[in-house]
């Protein structure tokens, strides 16, 4: 897989078009790594000159900040900003809504000013420019897809349509869950909940959301966030529906539609 780091670009005096911010989940989580690779396949297929920070990338600090630890957040943020400003980064694309939100909204006042794009918007623009050609229609023929709104894309940054536009490219039926868009129900991972046990309650949030997804009878739940992906995948498993319902990121689905990826339904 062809991936160049910013350091490699800098050594040849070249400038990439965009920095792909992979994020911790995309770097380390096995499921999210697949999404990272699918997105890179699309970028490479379209000859987009992107760079990653590789080992120079650190967590954006999102879970620490939302848990209340501003120290850890700012330590990481200021380090990341120093790295990016040294390279003269201008544009960032990321597959993680949490990274997207914090880079776009909270880095500027710390000295990190970039154009930050979530991959849903990035892919939608490529579609609008006619650069993405769907070649595989067989995979999605007659299938239903339901899109789960990530809180940090949707309510946090009012991106509701871009991921849906991406899914509309595929030859499948897009169905909505009971709560969607501004009323979209959280997967349960945000605010650093991903990293701890739930408080006492009657149900886990990801189960509540998975139930809404299952009610649509969709074969595919589309996510645009690695944490939502994990939470709903877990929910589907605990409902023992993993044979009938699969959770994919919009990048994986779009890569499959372009014949760059095979997915099993």
């Amino acid at each position: 897989m062809q991936v160049k780091t910013y350091a490699e670009y800098a050594s040849t005096g070249e400038t990439p078009e965009v920095l792909f911010w992979v994020g911790c989940a995309g770097s380390f989580d096995q499921r999210a790594q697949k999404v990272t690779r699918s997105f890179v396949k699309i970028l490479n297929h379209l000859n987009i000159r992107f760079a990653v920070l590789g080992t120079e990338e650190s967590c954006t600090g999102d879970p620490a900040k939302r848990a209340g630890n501003e120290f850890v957040f700012q330590m990481l943020a200021l380090q990341n900003i120093e790295v990016m400003n040294t390279y003269g980064v201008k544009r960032i694309v990321t597959t993680c809504p949490h990274c997207f939100n914090i880079l776009k909204n909270e880095y500027p006042s710390l000295g990190g000013n970039y154009e930050v794009i979530h991959h849903s918007t990035f892919l939608q623009k490529l579609i609008d420019e006619g650069r993405i050609k769907i070649t595989d229609t067989a995979t999605f023929k007659g299938k239903k897809i339901t899109y789960h709104d990530s809180c940090y894309l949707g309510r946090a940054n009012e991106i509701y349509e871009a991921p849906r536009k991406v899914l509309e490219e595929l030859d499948a039926e897009l169905v909505e869950m009971k709560s969607c868009r501004t009323k979209g129900l959280c997967c349960g991972a945000g605010g650093a909940q991903m990293f701890k046990e739930d408080e006492k309650g009657t149900k886990r949030i990801n189960i509540a959301r998975t139930e809404e997804a299952l009610e649509t009878n969709a074969q595919i739940v589309a996510a645009a966030c690695p944490f939502c992906n994990t939470m709903i995948t877990d929910g589907v498993k605990s409902k023992e529906k993993q044979q009938d319902v699969k959770v994919f990121d919009i990048a994986e689905l779009l890569a499959a539609g372009q014949g760059l990826e095979t997915i099993s339904l």
């Binding site: 780091t5 380390f28 990338e57 967590c59 620490a64 330590m75």
Partner: peptide
């Protein structure tokens, strides 16, 4: 769990205990 997460973030730049040197390993998958 949060304290573990904070420590991991401080030490290896990720909320999990993975080495920062392995951040690009995904491309070999």
């Amino acid at each position: 769990e949060w304290n573990g997460m904070f420590t991991a973030m401080e030490n290896n730049g990720a909320p999990w205990q993975f080495s920062q040197q392995d951040r690009l390993n995904w491309k070999n998958g």
